[in-house]
Amino acid sequence: MAFTLTRIFDRAQTDQGSFEEFEKLMRQTQKQAFSLAYRLTGNVSEAEDLVQDAYIRAFRFFYRYDRSMPFSSWLFRIVTNAHIDAVRRKCKLRTSSLDQGGDDGSKTIEVMDSSALPDALIAERDVNEDLQKGLDSMNQEFKMAVILADVEGMAYEEIAEVMNTSIGTVRSRIHRGRKHLKAHLLSTAPALYERYCDELL
């Protein structure tokens, strides 16, 4: 009983003491967290929501954070778990508002006008769209492994820690994920693939 009381008291104290440390770590990692969240969700507003959710969870369980491992690995694990939860929630609640429909039951959806953007921005957006479609067509585990390796540039050992699996499994997931993505890009956006091929050579 005394142990429980001490633990609760420590948590109440820790919330006060470690907030500054948490804020500092948050400032250092939020860009990385956002890029990971963006690649996972494929949408800026959803990525922002995911990042907020992940940081709130991280702060709530900050007293459990093991200082011997990098904060980013711990945070990415939270981001990926929060994303899995969000995907599950979304599968359950796939709703659409009928308020925006017309009298005849038709519905209008706002779409960005590509012609209003500069060429460079259009090209970049196309790459992002094609890449995102390729990533979204992948199995969640392959997608996460590829994103952590190629977007975040993490080592396989760190990825294994984040995904709670072995290095061998990570190696296999990354390889199969890349092959799937290559096949997808070659079939849906061969021009883009060729462009990158030329750039590399």
Binding site: F34, S35, Y38, R39, V44, S45, A47, E48, V51, E124, V127, N128, L131, V146, I147, D150, V151, G153, R178, K179, L181, K182, L185, L192, Y193, Y196, C197, E199, L200
Partner: peptide, 17 residues
Amino acid sequence: SLKITKRVCAVEVPSAT
């Protein structure tokens, strides 16, 4: 081909609002 795929993946993501 794997190098190209890796490079495409590393394309910069849009910035937050």
